[in-house]
């Protein structure tokens, strides 16, 4: 009758659709990699390659978010455009990207990504300083971990 009586996570995980109302912070987003706005294109490309990431956040002298440079920018604005690697990164980055807070719901983040086509969302604090970054893959990975965990708990339960 009562599966998983000892599992405090039962029915408060991904099986329950209210999981999407949880905060993005629950995904424990990693700290974002950043470059200053004075960086050049070559630095941006090297950065993406060396760190094997899809996006790097661009900050001003005060550490606040002013842009984001992603692999999509590489495809749409850099490739086949004949740009020099010493070109200002500011000229090819996405300016004033959409940002979210740690307490933004996962549902809203997914909606932004879906409707506006973002693959990465920088997370900022009250001072607009980047404190995290999430991607579609992060959310999918978290969903898969939580759902498969919940399903295996249900399947392994001793419900009479």
């Amino acid at each position: 009758m009562f599966a998983n009586q000892n599992n405090p996570e039962f029915n408060f995980g991904a099986i329950d659709n209210r999981f999407l109302a949880g905060s993005v912070g629950l995904l424990n987003p990693r700290e974002p990699l950043t470059l200053p706005e004075t960086a050049v294109l070559g630095q941006g490309l090297s950065f993406l390659r060396e760190h094997k990431v899809g996006a790097v956040v661009i900050t001003d002298a005060h550490g606040k978010v002013v842009g984001i440079f992603t692999e999509r920018d590489v495809i749409l604005r850099v490739a086949l455009q004949g740009l020099h690697i010493e070109s200002a990164l500011k000229s090819v980055m996405t300016i004033k990207p959409k940002t979210i807070r740690m307490t933004t719901t996962i549902a809203y983040a997914l909606q932004l990504m879906s409707e506006q086509g973002f693959r990465h969302l920088p997370i900022v604090d009250d001072d607009n300083i980047p404190v995290g970054i999430i991607s579609v893959k992060n959310i999918i990975d978290y969903l898969v971990r939580t759902v498969t965990g919940a399903i295996s708990e249900l399947a392994g339960s001793s419900e009479p």
Partner: peptide, 8 residues
Amino acid sequence: SKLLLLVK
């Protein structure tokens, strides 16, 4: 030093 809450 700053406290950043990850949850609501």
